[in-house]
């Protein structure tokens, strides 16, 4: 049984635009994603496609003006606001992107200690710092004093000390040098091998492919395909969705062909398939109704032409 299931999740915001008008912005629409213990699922999509909001929705920490619908299940149990609150930091941990997510006026050691739920916080924090090769002096530092690598390891230690079963890492790799990046990715593999479930939210498909078990391709606020990592091979024949194929072929080591056009803005989504305006296979039927998620060959896809 999957440890975490997200079904039909939609998130929208009410926003004032110029003058007196107010409009509804749909940032995530009918999104499906499942996460198994011991596996790494990489959610891959372009920057600014609302991926972080998926993480915030799972944790129940979206801003107040967000309208959310759909269900999120943890261990088969449907979550609501209060169960989400009790799981945060205990069962589900977030690893954020940067030091902006640390309190600027609090020593980092103390911040890691606040994540410890049982036992001696100081001991746990020092043990984790040792394990991640952080010097003990780091615990007395303030976030602005941390180097990139130190910051990332500090953020990681908050998740380790919490003993969470599900770890959601939001863009953990950008701006890191290759060595630190490799180390970071290995840390995630370690988590999964120890029985945790890891959701890796990233725009970096290449590094995701090196460690993930499954890849969820995210486009304009929804997952268009969930495929095992082995399918990303050759010319992308094994992939199911035209966008995944195009994304794969756009990589430098493959054909390096960019996808024409750009992702639609959340306030101006097309009515039918979200990818239809840029799709070479699109037929008039594609623009009528958003296709449902269907299971094909051990993966999931949202395309009526998929095989």
């Amino acid at each position: 049984m999957p440890i975490l299931e997200v079904e039909n999740l939609s998130i929208s915001f009410n926003q004032y635009t110029a003058g007196l008008r107010r409009k509804n912005i749909q940032v995530i629409s009918s999104l499906h994603v499942t996460l198994e213990a011991g596996e790494i699922l990489a959610v891959v999509g372009a920057s600014g496609s609302g991926k972080s909001l998926l993480a915030h929705a799972i944790l129940g920490i979206l801003p107040d003006n967000a309208l959310v619908s759909g269900t999120i299940k943890y261990n088969g149990e449907v979550l609501n606001a209060s169960t989400q609150a009790s799981l945060r930091g205990k069962e589900i941990a977030l690893i954020p992107q940067s030091t902006n997510y640390l309190d600027p006026l609090m020593r980092v050691g103390n911040q890691v200690r606040t994540s410890v739920k049982t036992g001696d916080a100081t001991v746990a924090q020092r043990a984790v710092f040792k394990r991640l090769h952080l010097q003990q002096s780091v615990e007395k530092m303030y976030p602005f004093q941390l180097s990139g690598g130190m910051a990332r390891r500090t953020l990681l230690s908050t998740a380790i000390v919490s003993d969470a079963k599900v770890i959601i890492a939001d863009e953990p790799t950008p701006g890191l040098d290759p060595v630190v990046m490799k180390e970071a990715l290995n840390n995630f593999r370690e988590f999964a091998d120890n029985g945790c479930a890891v959701m890796l939210i990233t725009h970096d498909i290449e590094s995701a492919l090196t460690i993930a078990d499954k890849i969820a391709v995210f486009y304009a606020g929804t997952t268009v395909e969930v495929a095992p990592v082995e399918d990303f091979t050759g010319n992308g024949e094994s992939l199911r969705h035209p966008y995944s194929k195009a994304l794969w072929r756009a990589l430098p080591q493959n054909d390096f062909i960019p996808i024409p056009g750009s992702q639609p803005h959340p306030s101006a989504l097309p009515t039918g398939c979200l990818f239809a305006p840029r799709c070479t296979m699109a037929t008039p039927a594609c623009s009528e109704k958003q296709p449902d998620m269907q299971n094909i060959r051990d993966g999931m896809v949202r395309c009526m032409h998929a095989t």
Binding site: A85, R88, G89, P96, N100, Y101, L102, P104, T114, K117
Partner: peptide, 25 residues
């Protein structure tokens, strides 16, 4: 702020959240 968002993600809320992160800032 992002750091309060992260603090909430770690399960902090209400008075504890204010005491740890609100007050000093």
């Amino acid at each position: 702020s992002d750091y309060v968002l992260f603090a909430r993600a770690r399960g902090e809320r209400g008075f504890i959240l204010f005491w740890r992160h609100g007050l000093r800032n």
